[in-house]
């Protein structure tokens, strides 16, 4: 078990986890129609920053914010006991390793960083990697930064797949027409020790699982096999009544939502409240698993939170958080 000791979200909806949480509470969405953002690309609906962001600068700002409230001598971003893990799919203009090195170097961290690039599940997989490295005793703290910025490359590709909805997405609706892309950076710092001020609300990452459907590269299994196996793994030892919220992927593509519904029904979890954040942020790719974990945990006062994701390459992942540890 590892403890969250700090977190941050920077998105078009706001700067900081609290600002983003309040934006969602107020029902604000970052989704807009863009018709001339990228040359040749057809108009699309997405949640983008008003001004183009620098990938490394954005990640650095997010990591910086996540430690603002943490004045603890046992923790330092520059320490050899701290590892940086970047979750991204397309990185800084198709370069994934260099930005991770630049982020770690910015804070004077001596360890070679790890980049997790596991399609849409990257942000959850990065947290699982962090948990394992800490539990194995290799590091004391892990800074998990998730980030992706939208480019002509990504939008054109999703358009060629006919996966984009021309209007704000409608997850789990019969009317759903596809997904919206989004931009964000989010950071969670995990630690082997609980370093937050006593009495303050916190959460711990208790379990994680990754499973492949072994079925198709760009469409999820119809039986939700990988997602179901992830749920069964992370639910071990947990009573259903103790689960406060399930953060689903809910991209609003025809196949993803149907698959998730099937997996949740098979696991007997169809009655548990779900958090679906894509209508607010769009699909923020490498940031999604980190950003959505933070907002799900903030939304639940007490109990367990399950966060699940599925993505290209047939990969699925889920984690279990325990809030108010």
């Amino acid at each position: 078990m590892v403890y969250c000791i700090g977190h941050s979200i920077i998105s078009p909806l706001g700067e900081g986890s609290q600002a983003n949480f309040e934006a969602v509470q107020a029902g604000r969405s970052g989704l807009k129609i863009y018709s001339d953002r990228f040359a040749d690309v057809e108009p699309f609906c997405a949640s983008l920053f008003d001004t183009p962001q620098d990938f490394v600068e954005l990640c650095v700002r997010s990591a910086q914010q996540s430690v603002v409230s943490l004045q603890h001598s046992a923790f330092s971003l520059a320490s050899k006991d701290t590892i940086f893990i970047l979750s991204t799919t397309k990185g800084d203009n198709l370069n994934l390793l260099r930005p991770a090195q630049q982020i770690a170097a910015h804070f004077g961290n001596p360890n070679p960083p790890i980049v997790v690039s596991n399609a849409c599940t990257s942000g959850v997989c990065a947290q699982i990697t962090a948990m394992r490295l800490l539990e194995a005793g290799l590091y004391q703290h892990a800074v998990v930064v998730g980030c992706d910025l939208q480019t002509r490359f990504i939008v054109s590709g999703f358009q060629s797949f006919k996966a984009l909805s021309p209007e704000p997405c409608l997850p789990f609706s019969e009317e759903r027409k596809g997904l919206n892309l989004g931009e964000a950076a989010a950071t969670i710092i995990y630690s082997r020790e609980r370093l937050s001020v006593s009495g303050e609300r916190c959460w711990a990452l208790e379990a994680g699982a990754i499973h492949n459907d072994a079925n198709h590269l760009s469409a999820p299994s119809r039986t939700g096999e990988g997602a179901y196996q992830c749920l069964m793994d992370v639910l071990q030892g947990v009573k259903k009544e103790e689960i406060g919220l399930i953060g689903v992927h809910g991209t609003a593509t025809l196949y993803n939502d149907a698959m998730e519904q099937t997996a949740l029904e098979r696991a007997g979890l169809q009655e548990i409240p779900r958090s679906v954040l894509k209508p607010y942020f769009g699909h923020t790719m490498g940031a999604a698993g980190v950003l959505e974990t933070i907002l799900c945990a903030m939304a639940v006062e007490k109990g367990y939170v399950i966060k699940m994701l599925s993505g290209f390459g047939g990969v699925n992942a889920a984690i279990r958080l325990k809030t108010e540890c």
Partner: peptide
Amino acid sequence: AIRQAIQGETAFYILD
């Protein structure tokens, strides 16, 4: 995973 019918974990890391 598809070819070998592996339904366990699959992951990809970018490292120096």
